[in-house]
Every structure is written in structure tokens, then in C-alpha cells.
Write a protein that binds this DNA or RNA. Structure first.
Lengths: 160, 160
DNA sequence: ATAACTGCAAAACATTTGCATACAG
DNA sequence: CTGTATGCAAATGTTTTGCAGTTAT
């Protein structure tokens, strides 16, 4: 749950700054504005939502720049990208939040986050068996939440 | 590794037949040919690869029908769909193969399959905590294989 | 100064859709 | 026969690209 305060954000911006300097890339106002907007997010978002939020805040950037900057931020490990089954990618700010996995309700599309240490063990075991350097993982659980107000809840099966 | 013999395939075709009958859908030659082609596969494939293989075998079907039939086969649980980070979906025949997860080399894009019983435990625990009915999961591990002939192997980091 | 970045609009790409025709039940 | 499935081509939605103009360094 990304509630980033000002001090944390300075750190994030510095990290992006160093990253850009290292690679001899430019620290443009567009890139900084995009990073700021991303770190206001309290949830996952897609590229177009980000583009529209920027517009709403009178930050004039093109979609092309949004995509370009997202890629940079992913390289820099300040943003994570997820593919939750839709063809459109979802993103989330990544700084200072523990690596976590996702639980998705296929009726209301709501996302929940969880952590389980056993995944680390699986990752290490598989790496050993296959002689791989495993860099990251993605575990998504799909199902149905039992919330009353969940829309599209499938009717009880007449005969199971 | 889907090496399906003739007898197993009869079973698969029957299952598809029952599924279609149940739903009052038609058993068209196109649908059967697509199922046959899918069960020849020894690896994951994408929709267009499947379309091209069918063409190569002089089975004249449109892409629309390929997509339509893939959806039916997924409902029928004879095919599984995966999103491995590309925007284009991958598919695999699902009959008689244990549920497994995937290890992906990001240099050569090669796929490996593994099973780990701990995932079941995670799934159950998370379902309990979040009061969810968890239907399925998708666990992908991404990294670098250590095969000699893996292309695009990143050079040794010069420093740190 | 100058090479990288930007916006724009067009292209690319996978997938879906609409509609006239074909055909399974 | 009848409505469902098909093929085709056009539409869709997301992401990428090419290029002329702009700007950080």
C-alpha cells in the first residue's frame, strides 16, 4: 500500500537521478513529473490511467513519453510491471514495499496483496534443479472473493 | 511434455464432444481439426503459430475460428492459456498433464516446467486469510539459464 | 552545440467484431 | 429448415515507432 511521504519521495527521486546520470540520460521535467504522479498512486494503474491523471494535473506529456519513462523506471527498479491476464499491463511503485504477490477476484477484478516465505524456498529449489539464476517471480492467485457487494458474482451452481 | 498417443486423443476428442453437446454447440470439422493440431504440439504455442501450422497442413480455418475454438477448449479445460510477460498469450494442451508452473529464461525465452507442492499450501492459506475461493494460480520464475548455447547471455558484469 | 528527448500521428501487433454465407443438427 | 459457426476484413485497444522540432547538459 504505497503511502509515500515526502522524505521517502526525495530518496526515490535521487535514485532516479543517479540512475539517469549513470546512463547519461537526461533528467527532463516530464520524467520527474511522471515519477511524482506514479508515487502518488495508492494502487495499481495502467499506462493510460497514468497518462490521464497527468493530463488532469495539467502535466502535458505524451503517451510515448509515459511508456518510455515507465520502462526507465522499471530498469531502475522504482516501478514493477504486472500482466494480470488482461493484455494491458499494470504497474505499481516499487520502492520500499516488500516484494509481494497478488490475489485477483475474477468477478470484480479487485487486487489483494500477500507475502509468503515459502515462495523464496521454491525459487531457490527450482534454481538449483534447473541450474538457473532466478531473478524474479510472479505468483498470481485467481478466484472469487466472497464480499457481498462483489459484482458479477456467479449464481450458485444448480447441480454441482 | 505432451506426447499424446492415439488412445489418449480419442478420450480428449470425446471430452470435447460431450462439452459441445452439453452446451448445444456444434461439432464442426474446424473445431476438431484445431483440437487435433493442438494435441500434436510438444510445446507451448501462440494463436498465430497454431493458425500457421493449420495452414501448412492444408486445414483452412480463419484466425477468428482459431481464437474462438481456443476459448472453447479453455472452458472445457483441454487447453491452458498463459501470459508470460509478452502481450501475446501462449497456450498448451492440458489433458493428462499435471498442473505445473513455469521457469523462463529471459535470454533465450526457453520454457521449463516444474511442480512444487508448497504452492498448494500457499493457495489454501491465502484463500483462508482473504476469504476467497481460489480457482487457479500462475507462478512464473524469470531468470537466466546457464546453458552454454543460450543466446543473448549477458556479459560478465565488469564491476559490481 | 549537439545528441537525446519530446509530441504527434502513423504503424504495429494481437485479438475481437460485424456481417454475409455456409452448414450441423 | 434454422440458427449457429465460419471467413473475411474492418475495428479495437495497447504499445511502439519515425520524424521534425525542442531542450538538457
Amino acid at each position: 500500500m504505497p503511502i509515500t511521504n515526502q522524505i521517502q519521495f526525495e530518496e526515490v527521486r535521487d535514485r532516479f537521478g543517479s540512475f539517469l546520470r549513470e546512463r547519461q540520460l537526461r533528467q527532463t521535467p516530464e520524467r520527474i513529473s511522471i515519477l511524482e504522479e506514479i508515487y502518488k498512486a495508492t494502487d495499481h494503474f495502467d499506462a493510460d490511467e497514468l497518462f490521464l491523471k497527468l493530463q488532469a494535473n495539467d502535466v502535458r506529456v505524451s503517451r510515448a513519453t509515459v511508456y518510455n519513462t515507465l520502462d526507465l523506471l522499471i530498469d531502475c527498479k522504482l516501478v514493477r510491471r504486472h500482466q494480470f491476464g488482461d493484455k494491458q499491463a499494470k504497474y505499481e511503485p516499487a520502492h520500499a514495499y516488500a516484494q509481494h504477490d497478488h490475489l485477483i477476484c475474477e468477478d470484480c477484478n479487485q487486487l489483494f496483496e500477500f507475502c509468503d516465505p515459502r515462495i523464496q524456498g521454491i525459487q531457490e529449489m527450482v534454481a538449483e534443479i534447473f541450474q538457473f539464476d532466478v531473478i524474479r517471480h510472479s505468483l498470481n492467485l485467481y478466484g472469487h472473493c466472497r464480499r457481498e457487494n462483489c459484482p458479477n458474482k456467479p449464481a450458485e451452481e444448480p447441480n454441482g
